[in-house]
Amino acid sequence: MYNPFSLNGKTILVTGGSSGIGRATAIECGKLGANVVVTGRNPERLKGVFDELDTSAAQRHQMVVADLATTDGIDCLTAALPNLDGLSSNAGTIVGNKPIRFLNEMDIQSIMQTNTFAHVLLAKLLFKKKLLNKGASCVFTVSIGGTLSHVPGSSIYGMSKAALDSFVKYAAIEFSARGIRCNSVCPGMIDTPLVNSPTLTDEDMAIDAQKYLLKRYGKPEEVARTAAFLLSDASSFITGTSIVVDGGYTVNH
């Protein structure tokens, strides 16, 4: 059957796979026929996602528990990897996000480590160790925050995402020598554990959701399907760019 969106036969690494957008991407890739290598920090939650992965097309999945915020974690992951046709790089945090006058060095370093440095160092190692096959696709979860939208109290999160978005473009240029494509997905607010910050009330979130043309926050699957498109051969001429998945938030502001 004709289906350029299929991920049949592709092996795809999904980081940040134990929750939120990463989890949904791992599950979606499995449903589209990919062999999924799913990684995350929390062994129980990761096992839960691994058990949910579709195996109806005899896909072979693998799970690797690793903390990508540490060099050891990245080394440990890359040592366990098969050759890849795709990378979905998701690990992210908003912990330590606060107004500028209250920032401290530890908050800044910890957010930058998880949201920027970990993605950069993983991509570097995958490329250097030739773990990405020719024609592979790398998809990084960025955000409209810091790239297209700037709200008070989230400077370091935004900075970390804008830095990552910029890196993706450089990676697209340097990795193109092997025909490897690199793109980012920029979601607006998505219903995931990450955005359930205790600083926001349900009322705040309901009001905020009205700023979206579609009058709601997104679902993790809606971002996952965009990532799956970029991982598939259907997007074979797309590289060095970004797809906004925000229910019309940025066009409305």
Binding site: P99, R101, F102, G153
Partner: peptide, 10 residues
């Protein structure tokens, strides 16, 4: 403002 609310929390 929402920034002052976040600032109080911080």
């Amino acid at each position: 403002s929402s920034l002052i609310a976040l600032s109080i929390i911080a």
